[in-house]
């Protein structure tokens, strides 16, 4: 565990907490893509199956359980409790266009052709693109509330910090995982446009509004 990895994990945790608090406090999930949240739930469930097979550390297990639980709670708030506030019409990204290529890619490019390993690989690929429905929703409505922007910034920063962690691990431990690195780079690139808008607008107190 190095500082980049810890900062990445905390950023990930912060993102999830921000999202839950936003929905809970405003009693609304307007502006949030339920489809992205469904994809994240699939990501956590397929990746953290190793909770049952491999013990790594208490930290590792607790974080995995928290991510799965928070993801489930988010889905519950969006699809059950505050269903009426869910932005159906704008959340129109077709997730099968992400799911199917990720399944195929995981079957072709993986470290080991076993069920657990393919599910892990699938979750890594899916996570890299899972934010697309959310970014699509923001682009369709042309704006995002500040709190939603903070959520996206924390969530995007998490994988960017992991990239630093992987550079550090490569230098310090000669450890690297090409699948995770490739997907992490893709994931971070997808946020670049948003990062730019966040830094130039949201941090200066303006609302995130896309040019018409």
């Amino acid at each position: 565990m190095n500082i980049f990895r810890l900062a990445g994990d905390l950023s990930h945790l912060l993102a999830i907490i921000i999202l839950l608090l936003k929905i809970w406090k405003t009693r609304s999930c307007a502006g949030i893509s339920g489809k992205s949240q469904v994809l994240f739930a699939i990501v956590y469930l397929t990746r953290y199956l190793d909770l049952f097979t491999t013990y790594i550390s208490l930290y590792n297990s607790i974080m995995k359980i928290v991510f799965i639980a928070a993801s489930g709670a988010t889905l519950y708030l969006m699809y059950v409790k505050f269903k009426a506030t869910y932005d159906h019409n704008h959340d129109s990204f077709r997730i099968e266009f992400l799911l199917i290529p990720c399944v195929i890619l995981a079957l072709i490019i993986n470290h080991d052709f076993t069920v657990m390993e393919i599910l892990w690989t699938f979750s890594i690929y899916l996570e890299s693109v899972a934010i697309l429905p959310q970014l699509f929703l923001v682009s369709k409505t042309g704006e995002a509330e500040s709190i939603t922007s903070h959520y996206l910034f924390a969530l995007g920063s998490y994988r960017a910090l992991y990239l630093l962690n992987w550079i550090y691990r490569y230098m310090a431990e000669s450890h690297y995982d090409l699948i995770a690195i490739f997907a992490g780079v893709v994931q971070t690139i997808l946020y670049c446009d948003f990062f730019y808008l966040y830094i130039t607008k949201v941090l200066k107190g303006k609302k995130l509004q896309l040019p018409a």
Binding site: H12, T54, I56, S57, M63, K64, F67, Y162, A180
Partner: peptide, 10 residues
Amino acid sequence: SDLKDAHDEL
């Protein structure tokens, strides 16, 4: 093992 190393991250 290498595989386990790969999975120590979240």
